[in-house]
Design a protein around this nucleic acid. Sequence first.
DNA 1: AAGGGCCTCAACCGCTATAGA
DNA 2: CTCTATAGCGGTTGAGGCCCT
Length: 295
Amino acid sequence: MVRTPCCKEEGIKKGAWTPEEDQKLIAYLQLHGEGGWRTLPEKAGLKRCGKSCRLRWANYLRPDIKRGEFSPEEDDTIIKLHALKGNKWAAIATSLAGRTDNEIKNYWNTNLKKRLKQKGLDPITHKPINSTGKTGLVPKTNKPVYSSGSARLLNRVASKYAVELNRDLLTGIISGNSTVAEDSQNSGDVDSPTSTLLNKMAATSVLINTTSPFSGFSDNCSFTDGFNEFFSNEEISDMYTTVDNFGIMEELKGILSYGGAGAGGIEDSPEVNVADAMEFIDSWNEDDKMVGVFV
DNA sequence: AAGGGCCTCAACCGCTATAGA
DNA sequence: CTCTATAGCGGTTGAGGCCCT
Protein backbone atom coordinates (compact mmCIF):
# COMPACT_ATOMS: atom_id res chain seq x y z
CA MET A 1 0.00 0.00 0.00
CA VAL A 2 1.32 3.40 -0.94
CA ARG A 3 0.92 5.70 1.97
CA THR A 4 -0.15 9.25 1.43
CA PRO A 5 2.50 11.63 2.69
CA CYS A 6 1.20 13.44 5.70
CA CYS A 7 3.36 16.48 6.23
CA LYS A 8 5.62 16.66 3.22
CA GLU A 9 3.63 19.07 1.11
CA GLU A 10 5.24 22.32 0.07
CA GLY A 11 4.46 25.30 2.26
CA ILE A 12 3.46 23.24 5.28
CA LYS A 13 4.68 24.79 8.47
CA LYS A 14 6.31 22.68 11.16
CA GLY A 15 7.59 23.29 14.65
CA ALA A 16 6.16 25.22 17.56
CA TRP A 17 2.67 26.61 17.26
CA THR A 18 2.08 30.33 17.59
CA PRO A 19 -0.79 31.78 19.69
CA GLU A 20 -2.40 32.96 16.44
CA GLU A 21 -2.39 29.45 15.04
CA ASP A 22 -3.83 28.11 18.27
CA GLN A 23 -6.63 30.66 18.14
CA LYS A 24 -7.48 29.76 14.56
CA LEU A 25 -7.61 26.08 15.43
CA ILE A 26 -9.69 26.60 18.57
CA ALA A 27 -12.11 28.88 16.78
CA TYR A 28 -12.60 26.41 13.96
CA LEU A 29 -13.11 23.42 16.26
CA GLN A 30 -15.52 25.30 18.49
CA LEU A 31 -17.57 26.08 15.43
CA HIS A 32 -17.37 22.77 13.57
CA GLY A 33 -16.33 20.20 16.14
CA GLU A 34 -13.64 17.57 15.85
CA GLY A 35 -13.04 15.49 12.74
CA GLY A 36 -12.21 16.05 9.12
CA TRP A 37 -8.62 16.73 10.05
CA ARG A 38 -7.30 16.36 6.54
CA THR A 39 -9.29 19.27 5.20
CA LEU A 40 -9.32 21.24 8.42
CA PRO A 41 -6.09 23.24 7.93
CA GLU A 42 -7.25 24.78 4.68
CA LYS A 43 -10.71 25.56 6.05
CA ALA A 44 -9.25 27.00 9.24
CA GLY A 45 -6.63 29.03 7.41
CA LEU A 46 -3.69 27.12 8.81
CA LYS A 47 -0.53 26.15 6.99
CA ARG A 48 -0.26 22.91 8.92
CA CYS A 49 -0.98 19.31 8.08
CA GLY A 50 -4.13 17.78 9.53
CA LYS A 51 -2.21 15.45 11.73
CA SER A 52 -0.32 18.30 13.31
CA CYS A 53 -3.62 20.06 14.00
CA ARG A 54 -5.13 16.97 15.56
CA LEU A 55 -2.13 16.46 17.84
CA ARG A 56 -2.02 20.09 18.84
CA TRP A 57 -5.67 19.89 19.80
CA ALA A 58 -5.49 16.50 21.50
CA ASN A 59 -2.33 17.16 23.48
CA TYR A 60 -2.54 20.83 24.26
CA LEU A 61 -5.62 22.84 23.31
CA ARG A 62 -8.48 20.57 24.34
CA PRO A 63 -10.45 22.35 27.09
CA ASP A 64 -10.62 19.31 29.37
CA ILE A 65 -6.87 18.94 29.60
CA LYS A 66 -5.52 19.31 33.09
CA ARG A 67 -2.21 21.12 33.16
CA GLY A 68 0.28 21.51 35.95
CA GLU A 69 2.12 19.17 38.24
CA PHE A 70 1.11 15.57 38.76
CA SER A 71 -0.24 14.78 42.20
CA PRO A 72 1.25 11.97 44.32
CA GLU A 73 -1.95 10.02 43.68
CA GLU A 74 -1.49 10.41 39.94
CA ASP A 75 2.13 9.31 40.29
CA ASP A 76 1.07 6.16 42.10
CA THR A 77 -1.60 5.41 39.55
CA ILE A 78 0.81 5.80 36.65
CA ILE A 79 3.43 3.61 38.28
CA LYS A 80 0.94 0.92 39.14
CA LEU A 81 -0.72 0.96 35.74
CA HIS A 82 2.64 0.93 34.03
CA ALA A 83 3.52 -2.17 36.02
CA LEU A 84 0.34 -3.77 34.75
CA LYS A 85 0.17 -2.49 31.19
CA GLY A 86 3.70 -1.48 30.22
CA ASN A 87 4.18 1.44 27.85
CA LYS A 88 0.51 1.58 26.94
CA TRP A 89 0.31 5.31 27.47
CA ALA A 90 -3.09 5.74 25.93
CA ALA A 91 -4.51 3.01 28.14
CA ILE A 92 -2.90 4.54 31.19
CA ALA A 93 -4.22 7.96 30.23
CA THR A 94 -7.80 6.71 30.36
CA SER A 95 -7.40 6.31 34.12
CA LEU A 96 -6.12 9.84 34.64
CA ALA A 97 -8.77 12.41 33.83
CA GLY A 98 -7.43 15.39 31.96
CA ARG A 99 -4.02 13.90 31.28
CA THR A 100 -2.90 12.99 27.77
CA ASP A 101 -0.90 9.96 26.75
CA ASN A 102 1.85 12.24 25.54
CA GLU A 103 2.02 14.06 28.84
CA ILE A 104 2.10 10.85 30.83
CA LYS A 105 4.74 9.40 28.55
CA ASN A 106 6.92 12.48 28.99
CA TYR A 107 6.36 12.52 32.71
CA TRP A 108 7.27 8.88 32.95
CA ASN A 109 10.45 9.28 30.94
CA THR A 110 11.61 12.40 32.74
CA ASN A 111 10.50 11.76 36.32
CA LEU A 112 8.97 8.46 37.32
CA LYS A 113 11.50 6.26 35.55
CA LYS A 114 14.30 7.96 37.41
CA ARG A 115 12.44 7.73 40.67
CA LEU A 116 12.07 3.98 40.29
CA LYS A 117 15.75 3.63 39.49
CA GLN A 118 16.63 5.64 42.57
CA LYS A 119 14.56 3.18 44.58
CA GLY A 120 16.57 0.36 43.04
CA LEU A 121 13.71 -0.81 40.85
CA ASP A 122 13.83 -1.72 37.20
CA PRO A 123 11.45 0.74 35.46
CA ILE A 124 10.52 -1.90 32.91
CA THR A 125 9.80 -4.86 35.18
CA HIS A 126 9.17 -2.82 38.36
CA LYS A 127 11.22 -5.37 40.24
CA PRO A 128 14.39 -4.82 42.26
CA ILE A 129 17.32 -4.34 39.91
CA ASN A 130 19.53 -6.68 41.91
CA SER A 131 16.72 -9.13 42.32
CA THR A 132 17.57 -12.76 43.00
CA GLY A 133 15.21 -13.71 40.25
CA LYS A 134 11.98 -13.30 42.11
CA THR A 135 9.20 -12.12 39.87
CA GLY A 136 5.56 -11.45 40.35
CA LEU A 137 4.42 -14.75 38.96
CA VAL A 138 7.18 -17.17 39.84
CA PRO A 139 7.14 -17.53 43.60
CA LYS A 140 6.96 -21.31 43.63
CA THR A 141 9.89 -21.48 45.97
CA ASN A 142 8.86 -18.30 47.69
CA LYS A 143 5.44 -18.87 49.10
CA PRO A 144 3.54 -15.64 49.48
CA VAL A 145 2.34 -14.41 52.82
CA TYR A 146 -1.39 -14.72 53.43
CA SER A 147 -3.20 -11.51 52.74
CA SER A 148 -6.14 -11.45 55.06
CA GLY A 149 -7.76 -8.35 53.56
CA SER A 150 -8.24 -9.42 49.98
CA ALA A 151 -8.83 -13.01 50.98
CA ARG A 152 -11.52 -11.91 53.36
CA LEU A 153 -13.27 -9.94 50.65
CA LEU A 154 -13.15 -12.87 48.27
CA ASN A 155 -14.24 -15.24 50.95
CA ARG A 156 -17.29 -13.11 51.53
CA VAL A 157 -18.19 -13.30 47.87
CA ALA A 158 -17.55 -17.03 47.83
CA SER A 159 -19.64 -17.81 50.87
CA LYS A 160 -22.40 -15.56 49.64
CA TYR A 161 -22.85 -17.08 46.22
CA ALA A 162 -21.27 -20.50 46.60
CA VAL A 163 -21.52 -22.98 43.78
CA GLU A 164 -23.09 -21.06 40.95
CA LEU A 165 -20.62 -18.27 41.07
CA ASN A 166 -18.58 -18.15 37.93
CA ARG A 167 -16.95 -15.52 35.80
CA ASP A 168 -20.18 -14.66 34.05
CA LEU A 169 -21.94 -14.16 37.33
CA LEU A 170 -19.11 -12.16 38.78
CA THR A 171 -19.16 -10.02 35.69
CA GLY A 172 -22.88 -9.65 36.14
CA ILE A 173 -22.49 -8.68 39.75
CA ILE A 174 -19.96 -6.07 38.92
CA SER A 175 -21.80 -4.66 35.95
CA GLY A 176 -25.06 -4.81 37.90
CA ASN A 177 -26.76 -7.24 35.46
CA SER A 178 -26.71 -10.41 37.50
CA THR A 179 -29.86 -12.47 37.71
CA VAL A 180 -28.32 -15.61 39.12
CA ALA A 181 -27.82 -14.59 42.69
CA GLU A 182 -30.89 -16.31 44.10
CA ASP A 183 -29.83 -19.61 42.54
CA SER A 184 -26.46 -19.28 44.09
CA GLN A 185 -27.81 -18.49 47.48
CA ASN A 186 -29.57 -21.84 47.63
CA SER A 187 -26.36 -23.73 47.52
CA GLY A 188 -24.32 -24.72 50.53
CA ASP A 189 -21.64 -26.53 48.59
CA VAL A 190 -18.36 -25.07 49.63
CA ASP A 191 -16.06 -27.40 47.73
CA SER A 192 -17.03 -25.98 44.38
CA PRO A 193 -15.66 -24.38 41.24
CA THR A 194 -16.65 -21.14 42.88
CA SER A 195 -14.35 -21.76 45.75
CA THR A 196 -11.59 -22.70 43.37
CA LEU A 197 -12.09 -19.57 41.32
CA LEU A 198 -12.15 -17.36 44.35
CA ASN A 199 -9.13 -19.03 45.77
CA LYS A 200 -7.40 -18.26 42.51
CA MET A 201 -8.52 -14.69 42.68
CA ALA A 202 -7.40 -14.38 46.26
CA ALA A 203 -4.10 -16.03 45.52
CA THR A 204 -3.52 -13.67 42.62
CA SER A 205 -4.28 -10.77 44.89
CA VAL A 206 -1.91 -12.11 47.48
CA LEU A 207 0.80 -12.43 44.90
CA ILE A 208 0.41 -8.88 43.80
CA ASN A 209 0.16 -7.72 47.36
CA THR A 210 3.35 -9.41 48.43
CA THR A 211 5.45 -8.76 45.36
CA SER A 212 4.48 -5.18 44.70
CA PRO A 213 7.07 -2.72 45.94
CA PHE A 214 4.37 -0.14 46.40
CA SER A 215 1.58 0.34 48.85
CA GLY A 216 -1.23 2.71 49.60
CA PHE A 217 -2.49 3.24 46.09
CA SER A 218 -5.75 4.96 45.58
CA ASP A 219 -8.78 2.77 45.00
CA ASN A 220 -10.41 4.74 42.24
CA CYS A 221 -11.97 1.60 40.85
CA SER A 222 -15.45 2.37 39.69
CA PHE A 223 -16.30 -1.27 39.10
CA THR A 224 -17.00 -1.77 42.79
CA ASP A 225 -20.04 0.42 42.29
CA GLY A 226 -21.74 -2.62 40.82
CA PHE A 227 -21.50 -4.37 44.16
CA ASN A 228 -24.09 -1.98 45.53
CA GLU A 229 -26.83 -4.33 44.47
CA PHE A 230 -25.42 -7.15 46.54
CA PHE A 231 -23.51 -5.58 49.39
CA SER A 232 -24.33 -2.96 51.96
CA ASN A 233 -22.49 0.32 52.01
CA GLU A 234 -20.69 -0.90 55.08
CA GLU A 235 -19.53 -4.02 53.26
CA ILE A 236 -18.40 -2.01 50.25
CA SER A 237 -16.55 0.32 52.56
CA ASP A 238 -14.93 -2.74 54.06
CA MET A 239 -13.79 -3.79 50.60
CA TYR A 240 -12.11 -0.46 50.12
CA THR A 241 -10.29 -0.68 53.40
CA THR A 242 -9.29 -4.31 53.08
CA VAL A 243 -8.51 -4.40 49.40
CA ASP A 244 -6.18 -1.49 49.58
CA ASN A 245 -4.09 -2.13 46.54
CA PHE A 246 -4.92 -0.79 43.10
CA GLY A 247 -3.20 -3.76 41.50
CA ILE A 248 -5.57 -6.17 43.18
CA MET A 249 -8.53 -4.35 41.75
CA GLU A 250 -7.01 -4.30 38.30
CA GLU A 251 -6.14 -7.96 38.46
CA LEU A 252 -9.58 -8.91 39.67
CA LYS A 253 -11.12 -7.02 36.82
CA GLY A 254 -8.82 -8.85 34.47
CA ILE A 255 -9.69 -12.23 35.89
CA LEU A 256 -13.35 -11.48 35.55
CA SER A 257 -13.00 -10.81 31.86
CA TYR A 258 -10.49 -13.60 31.30
CA GLY A 259 -11.65 -16.45 29.12
CA GLY A 260 -14.05 -14.42 27.06
CA ALA A 261 -16.69 -14.11 29.72
CA GLY A 262 -17.31 -10.54 28.71
CA ALA A 263 -16.71 -7.83 31.19
CA GLY A 264 -19.65 -5.55 30.62
CA GLY A 265 -18.58 -2.08 31.59
CA ILE A 266 -15.17 -3.20 32.68
CA GLU A 267 -12.68 -1.72 30.36
CA ASP A 268 -9.18 -2.44 29.31
CA SER A 269 -8.40 -5.47 31.37
CA PRO A 270 -4.79 -6.63 31.26
CA GLU A 271 -5.48 -9.84 29.37
CA VAL A 272 -1.92 -10.97 28.99
CA ASN A 273 -1.00 -10.47 32.59
CA VAL A 274 -4.12 -12.15 33.74
CA ALA A 275 -3.59 -15.09 31.41
CA ASP A 276 -0.12 -15.50 32.82
CA ALA A 277 -1.43 -15.13 36.32
CA MET A 278 -4.14 -17.71 35.79
CA GLU A 279 -1.70 -20.14 34.22
CA PHE A 280 0.61 -19.71 37.12
CA ILE A 281 -2.14 -19.98 39.68
CA ASP A 282 -3.38 -23.16 38.01
CA SER A 283 0.03 -24.73 38.21
CA TRP A 284 0.46 -23.50 41.70
CA ASN A 285 -2.85 -25.03 42.69
CA GLU A 286 -1.84 -28.35 41.19
CA ASP A 287 1.27 -28.30 43.31
CA ASP A 288 -0.94 -27.91 46.39
CA LYS A 289 0.65 -24.64 47.27
CA MET A 290 -2.47 -22.54 47.50
CA VAL A 291 -2.23 -19.93 50.17
CA GLY A 292 -5.45 -20.82 51.86
CA VAL A 293 -8.96 -22.13 51.50
CA PHE A 294 -11.34 -19.27 51.81
CA VAL A 295 -14.64 -21.10 52.07
C1' DA B 1 28.73 36.99 32.85
C1' DA B 2 29.32 33.29 29.73
C1' DG B 3 28.97 29.02 27.78
C1' DG B 4 28.54 24.23 27.84
C1' DG B 5 25.87 20.38 29.25
C1' DC B 6 21.57 18.64 30.84
C1' DC B 7 16.62 18.41 31.11
C1' DT B 8 11.93 19.00 29.70
C1' DC B 9 8.19 18.54 26.81
C1' DA B 10 5.76 19.90 22.52
C1' DA B 11 5.91 18.23 18.20
C1' DC B 12 7.07 15.07 14.74
C1' DC B 13 7.73 10.45 12.57
C1' DG B 14 6.58 6.01 11.31
C1' DC B 15 3.72 2.58 11.94
C1' DT B 16 -0.77 -0.08 12.78
C1' DA B 17 -5.77 -0.39 13.11
C1' DT B 18 -10.09 0.50 11.36
C1' DA B 19 -13.86 1.99 8.53
C1' DG B 20 -15.81 2.68 4.32
C1' DA B 21 -16.01 2.84 -0.72
C1' DC C 1 -11.13 -8.62 -1.24
C1' DT C 2 -8.52 -4.48 -2.15
C1' DC C 3 -7.54 0.12 -1.66
C1' DT C 4 -7.63 4.53 0.56
C1' DA C 5 -8.37 7.86 4.15
C1' DT C 6 -8.28 8.73 8.72
C1' DA C 7 -7.41 8.07 13.57
C1' DG C 8 -4.54 6.66 17.02
C1' DC C 9 -0.41 4.91 19.18
C1' DG C 10 4.41 4.72 20.90
C1' DG C 11 9.13 6.11 20.00
C1' DT C 12 12.09 9.84 18.97
C1' DT C 13 13.69 14.48 18.19
C1' DG C 14 15.10 19.07 18.97
C1' DA C 15 14.30 23.87 20.62
C1' DG C 16 14.46 26.32 24.51
C1' DG C 17 15.10 26.84 29.28
C1' DC C 18 17.74 25.74 33.33
C1' DC C 19 21.74 24.71 35.98
C1' DC C 20 26.42 24.31 37.00
C1' DT C 21 31.11 25.60 36.67
